[in-house]
Design a protein around this nucleic acid. Structure first.
Lengths: 339, 339
DNA sequence: TTGAAAGCGCTAACAA
DNA sequence: TTGTTAGCGCTTTCAA
């Protein structure tokens, strides 16, 4: 017989103490890393605990230590494959450090900010990662100000009080501009993301900036709002026009939209990619490598971003009042078949 | 001036009580739904609370009520778009009921079971949803037995002690068999999912069963393990053969694999879909409707599954000891271009 | 309806 | 190294 893990019975440290014939605080010590207990005591307690199926109650512990070992993750939509990927890796990385992720799905609507912040604080999360498109900055700022460290993941406009981990959107977009110009494209367009997002703005700016430096300028532009439907609309507006007015290259602000654009170009407008029009995305989500799309794109090195996020956040959880940092990880152009 | 939400200061019910000139328990009552307080008291307390920026500490509350309002969600990989979709909707649905989702990413490896169960119990989750491919049953069973209700989402083999919400995999697969036979396909193949999963087995069985009833039998079969790489391998084994031995229809156990199969067929083997070979998937993830794939598939009506899951779990959290139920929601064949 | 008091399960001083 | 004691912030009897 291996022990008494019986149905729904809460075994407390007190029960273990009684069975082992020691004090309750001794039990606590045995289960608290970094405390000193004699080998004998450890063994006695461990034995009793095993027999009773005891495990410390994390919530009770949190109450006194002030640490819940829970990280709040703000996400707004998981349609874009980049986010599930990020979620999975963030979750694993935090898990490896003994933290868990509590998910907060938020819509892009305004006004929700305060409710979300309250929710976050109510659960006593130790820190938050804001990967949502909309109200991230606002929420992150409020949390930081109430003493809960926050890191903006894949967004941020250089706010001096906020920690940000992004890719070098400007730099990535510049590489795309170079690719188009160098390969002799002449009517270069851009389909941008949601204008409320810094990521969208930086990609657009870097792209135009570099185009200008190379002596060209943008031929056409439309906003796709980072959604599939938005991108479909933008693609139609840009390409459903007489031949001569049609762009011969388009930089789409993320892969998720780029797939939609390619679908419109190939299936609705019967255009050849990349012969008649080059398409480049941003993110390098797994699907970009699938033969059906084979999308040239800028890689965000998700692993580095995740690593940086985890490190920054945990550092701030351990030691308050670290100054805000802005990490911008280099993006790398991945050349595939679409450009 | 709107209030004193100052940096990192924990405002307790006690502080509010002092400011409002009432007892601490009065404050508690005002913030506990379903207690009786006079309007005057409510107002006084509310005012003081607002001024101080007070919110009850959920963890402390949990300690005494024994309810954390946290649901543990077990997922194994988010590559298959079905799972992020499910995660997003489950999260929203639970959120609407005042619960939050704590994510537990687990790999398909064996042996982890106990660690995962411990983790889950440590966090005092009120219930768990197991959507992971691997150790779901084991984990769910152990949790249920220790008094934490669990629902298996999209898996389950009819275990009498476990709550399950699945789609009618057998029925869905039968519809696919009918489609193939009716449309005159003669060499019908199947690419199956991971054999450790009930979902995979049911889909395979239903398919073969109906084929037999219609007087045919399976021409070829390969296992794709529910992964993209697995599916690529399976497709090659099945189709990279002399013309006459090549299947003219294939039912792939989920959309995620079906996309891989289509990629192999079209880009590596230069086969025409659906002319030379019909492809049907399962799940109806959003991507299935994109023109690049335009995949005929069986729809899982995710919203119904989510609703059922939430209802079952919350019912069990409120009232212990409800008998296990197995909900199998009907699947619907969505005819698109690939078959 | 309200306040006083007990205690949820644990950690962290402090003494021994 | 160990036990004793005092809370963490809250809900919930119990009297008033």
């Amino acid at each position: 017989m291996s022990g008494g893990v019986t149905k729904g019975v809460r075994v407390t440290a007190h029960d273990v103490a009684k069975r082992a014939g020691v004090s309750q605080s001794a039990v606590s010590r045995v289960f608290t890393p970094g405390t000193s207990v004699s080998p004998l005591m450890a063994e006695k307690v461990q034995k009793a605990a095993d027999e009773l199926g005891y495990r410390p109650n994390v919530l009770a512990r949190s109450l006194i230590t002030g640490r819940s070992r829970i990280i709040g993750l703000l996400v707004s939509y998981l349609e874009n494959q980049f986010y599930p990927e990020a979620l999975a890796r963030l979750s694993k990385a935090f898990q490896a450090k003994g933290y868990r992720i509590l998910v907060f799905m938020v819509s892009r609507d305004e006004g929700e900010t305060d409710r979300v912040v309250q929710d976050l604080l109510d659960y006593q999360v130790d820190g938050i990662v804001a990967a949502s498109v909309g109200l991230s900055d606002d929420v992150a700022l409020k949390c930081t100000r109430s003493g809960v460290p926050a890191v903006l993941f894949n967004r941020g406009q250089g706010h001096p009080d906020l920690c940000e981990v992004t890719s070098d959107n400007r730099g990535g977009a510049r590489q795309v501009a170079d690719l188009f110009v160098t390969s002799g494209r002449e009517r270069i367009a851009h389909i941008s993301g949601w204008s409320g997002s810094s990521t969208a703005r930086e990609r657009a700016e870097g792209f135009k900036e570099r185009l200008a430096e190379r002596g060209t300028c943008l031929f056409a532009e439309a906003c796709g709002d980072f959604t599939r439907d938005g991108a479909v609309g933008a693609a139609r507006r840009l390409f459903n026009v007489p031949r001569g007015e049609r762009p011969d290259a388009v930089f789409v602000a993320n892969d998720h939209m780029a797939f939609a654009v390619m679908d419109v170009l190939r299936f609705e407008l019967k255009l050849q990619i990349p012969d008649e029009v080059s398409v480049v995305g941003y993110d390098d989500v797994p699907m970009a490598g699938w033969p059906s799309y084979n999308l040239t794109t800028v890689s965000q090195s998700l692993d580095d971003m995740v690593l940086a996020t985890v490190n920054q956040l945990l550092a701030r959880i351990k030691k308050e009042e670290l100054p805000a940092t802005h990490e911008r990880l280099a993006g790398r152009l991945i050349r595939r078949g679409s450009a």
